[in-house]
Design a binder for these strands. Structure first.
Lengths: 351, 351
DNA sequence: TAGCCATGTGAGATCGATCTCATATCGGCC
DNA sequence: GGCCGATATGAGATCGATCTCACATGGCTA
């Protein structure tokens, strides 16, 4: 009966053994209990032991919200990728989470879905949550007052995959321009001159850089830029299919296609097949960003690979250093990319 | 000079316009300011206006940590998938996030990586963060005292993809046993009798159910169970490759393979190709869980598809109802699966 | 023995928002 | 004219952990 009564009490009081309870159980003040549990200041050995035992017995766990109110910060880092469904960002999410957890932080993931307005709101929302820092792939290269503002207020921010103009933040990028240039160089070397580009919203930093690489390469080879060969699409398989079809339903169609991310590459694959165009006989294809199934398709897809395994861990480390109070000037790390030649490029047919 | 001084002050004071500042600016007490901003109780029209204007002018945003301390809860929902890199869980993460944001909640994603101990720690960690609820894919079907305990304390929990024994929680599942049975039925109908199964850790609920479906189908067709035809692997492409190779390097190898999730299906594809076995001539293949590239491969892969677009939204809705105070008995929703016949199954060759 | 430091402990303030309760003012009604 | 209720506002308590400060001891030195 007694046991049942206690059980019910537990249930009713719901959650929350507080420091006060522990202090009462150990017959000391809250201050002393706190000292014993967090080992600072003076506490008698015997007292400390009593407190710790009481805490154990009651199953005490500090309320992190209360701690956060006092310290001004939750042990949470916010991650704002462009789209968590993109394997690139999902992989980074995983790596960040592993790294941050080692240091007692949780990762709060909120996808901006490539919408500046949503990015702004999410950032605002996380700010009012007093998260400790941000790891962010800015949706826009230019429209980012909100990010500059946050940085100005001293919030620890690490930008990944993309930079924001004028932002004084640590950044982790890849060499988009160089990678794109190398892709187009490679296609030109293989005899292509009508090379289509399928890219995402021009607001996005990587899209700009990859476009620049495309343009520079063409220019270097004396090939005139044909705007009609540049397709724009959102970064989803579905939208990429439509955009690809638009690019290839025209007279004098391109002999090669360069897609700027893995979801688009997949969309292009599907679209080309549905149009009865075979790779690489009818169209050569190179994608930016490698993906698991690139070696499953027939032919296997040639890609410009990013060192994805290094981005998350480095970003996490940079952020942790900032959280630890590092004051140095912002650091920008730009990883090289690597062309992986498989079977999706050949010389164009003579027509 | 004056302006510069103010700028510097802003920088130094760092963050935080508080309610107190707003109240002071509007020349009212904190209580009145709170009433005006949250519109409750009596406030004079003119006063309210003054407060709101002051708040706007100062850029006031309520500190959610302070609110949480008082209310006991942060507007955060915790999501603990088995692995955020698995497209299945990534897709659900996306759907949950969209749905929850509509209701003012953020989603905190913490992957358990199929480790019970890690799941326990993460749950504990989120609990001390006072998150409002949990959406969880339990790592183990049986070892889940921590989940039962949490549920007993009245924490809102929705289980997805998997159930935890004895847990009185809302759950959203698919018909794993029926789906698996149907897959094997289909293979048997196509003349297969030596059907291999590649599944993940037997601790996992879906693995158990899918195994049961496999066994029941064989039994129904009078085929004796051969344990050596059952391979176990973690749910990653790499591990699945190895496990597949193990299954197929033996005399009298299986004529068909059933893989229990999309990453394993991809691993099996790679492994079979590397062994020079062609699909479906040498081996028929069916996977549980559809994936984008299943139609890109040659041949396209026959799969048992899950209604993935419905799982996240329903789970979010169930959780929101609980957060709103719904008291009804736990609800279990089990979606049917659907066989999508493509080209990876044929009759086995006579040998 | 007076004085001082090292040690140990508790009362109360603090973080920011919210809520309860007390108080103040006004109009209207008997 | 005085009283009641509706309206309006503020003082202070609360959530839980932590920190500052003040206050006790006790032992030791001068």
């Amino acid at each position: 009966m007694a046991a049942r009564g206690i059980g019910r009490m537990r249930t009713l009081t719901r959650k929350g053994v507080t420091l006060k309870d522990v202090a009462a159980a150990a017959n000391v003040s809250r201050a002393t209990a706190a000292r014993a549990l967090n080992s600072y200041g003076y506490v008698g050995d015997e007292t400390a032991l009593r407190v710790i035992e009481a805490a154990d017995a009651l199953g005490y766990r500090a309320n992190r919200v209360a701690q956060a109110l006092r310290s001004g910060q939750l042990p949470i880092v916010g991650y704002l990728p462009g789209d968590i469904q993109n394997p690139f960002f999902a992989r980074i999410a995983h790596d960040l989470e592993v790294e941050l957890r080692k240091h007692g932080h949780n990762l709060l993931i909120a996808s901006s879905e490539e919408d500046v307005e949503q990015e702004r709101e999410l950032l605002e929302s996380l700010r009012s949550l007093s998260v400790r820092g941000f790891i962010l792939a800015p949706t826009s290269a230019t429209d980012n007052q909100h990010i500059l503002q946050l940085a100005r207020e001293g919030a620890p921010i690490v930008l990944i995959d993309r930079v924001a103009e004028n932002a004084r933040c640590d950044s982790v990028l890849v060499d988009n321009e160089g990678g794109a240039r190398e892709v187009v160089d490679y296609l030109v070397t293989n005899g292509h001159r009508r090379i289509a580009l399928l890219r995402d919203d021009s607001r996005i930093f990587t899209a700009q850089e990859r476009l620049a690489g495309y343009q520079h390469s063409l220019q270097a080879h004396g090939i005139e830029l044909d705007e009609s060969l540049i397709g724009v699409s959102r970064s989803t398989v579905e939208q990429a299919i439509e955009a690809t079809i638009r690019l290839f339903t025209r007279r004098n169609r391109p002999t090669a296609l360069f897609t700027v991310d893995s979801l688009m590459t997949q969309g292009a694959l599907l679209a080309l097949r549905s149009m009865g165009l075979s790779i690489p006989q009818d169209v050569s294809l190179v994608g930016f960003d490698d993906f698991d199934l690139a070696t499953f398709t027939d032919p296997q897809i040639t890609v410009m690979a990013q060192p994805i395994a290094e981005i998350g861990p480095l970003a996490a480390q940079m952020l942790l250093e900032r959280l630890a109070g590092k004051k140095a000037a912002p650091r920008l790390k730009r990883f090289p990319t690597r062309l992986i030649v498989r079977g999706s490029v050949s010389h164009p047919k003579k027509r």
